[in-house]
């Protein structure tokens, strides 16, 4: 395996032109990539490109309309950001519950996005806040909404030579929360997780509501039928039955499809009653 460590995006693109090897991995934090390495079985890429040193892709900055997160920003930096805590509660909370401290110091938000796991903890928050993913390729840059960028488990719209450079979040003053059900307090991959973004009037009625759930479909999914039912004013008990229309869970080593469906409805209901004060507490 050959190892390269470009210092800039230009250097990265120049490197790509010279490479002839067919299998190549991009290394950011490495926390999803490295557990899959099996040198004994030859399951290694021919080329590893370590992008962690590329300039200008780290850190959280703000302007009047947006918060912009560099793709190489670590989950620990997101967890510690007061800006994120104040304005993007679901992302801040997801970072808090993300793996353990050792992994948070390495794992990057760009890596979590490109890994495109159906269970990725950072993703539901990005979906409900309708994050835009900024990509830089050899022929220029483009921007795609997160829900269009991820197309399947481990699959994204990333073209050869492109990397994620930034994540853009609009500052709309929307509140959000994140909830994760795992088999262990930390390091656990979610059995189900979700983020809720909402605005409420002074009576507690929703003026906007957006929910995205993970681990219940090939990608993160919006719970549109459930949200429509809630917004139409039906009772929480009735609305919760619509969740099954939005999801398509499977059986795997962590849980069965039935369990995921039941668990998601239960923890959603819990959050609506106790965190959002809907129905009877």
């Amino acid at each position: 395996m050959k190892y390269f460590r470009p210092n800039s995006i230009d250097e990265y693109h120049e490197l790509l032109v010279t490479l002839k090897e067919t299998s190549m991995s991009i290394l950011a934090g490495g926390t999803d990539l490295m557990p899959r390495w099996e040198p004994d079985k030859g399951l290694m890429p021919d080329v590893l490109i370590d992008i962690k040193k590329i300039d200008g892709l780290m850190g959280i900055r703000e302007n009047e309309d947006e918060i912009i997160i560099g793709a190489l920003t670590t989950i620990q930096d997101i967890k510690k950001s007061i800006l994120m805590q104040n304005e993007f509660g679901s992302l801040s909370e997801a970072a808090r519950q993300f793996a353990g401290v050792q992994i948070r110091h390495r794992a990057t938000i760009g890596g979590n996005i490109c890994n495109a796991s159906p269970a990725g903890d950072i993703l539901p928050g990005l979906y409900v806040h309708q994050a835009n993913i900024q990509l830089i390729g050899p022929n220029g840059s483009r921007s795609i909404p997160i829900s269009k960028f991820i197309i399947g488990p481990g699959k994204t719209m990333l073209e050869p030579g492109e990397i994620v450079s930034e994540i853009h979040l609009l500052r709309k003053g929307v509140k959000s929360l994140f909830y994760k059900l795992g088999l262990r307090q930390s390091m656990a991959i979610a059995v189900v997780n979700f983020a809720i973004a909402y605005q409420q009037d002074s009576n507690g009625a929703f003026t906007s509501l957006n929910i995205a759930a993970g681990s219940v479909a090939p990608t993160i999914v919006y719970l549109e039928s459930f949200v429509d039912a809630i917004m139409s004013g039906v009772s929480l008990d009735e609305a919760i039955q619509h969740v099954d229309i939005d999801i398509s869970p499977i059986d795997d080593i962590r849980a069965t499809a039935d369990y995921r469906s039941t668990a998601l409805k239960n923890v959603l209901e819990y959050n609506f009653r106790h965190e959002l004060h809907q129905g009877n507490e």
Binding site: Y3, R5, G30, T31
Partner: peptide, 10 residues
């Protein structure tokens, strides 16, 4: 950090 997930070259 977890040394099992950290390439030495890094």
């Amino acid at each position: 950090v977890l040394s099992c997930m950290t390439p030495t070259l890094r």
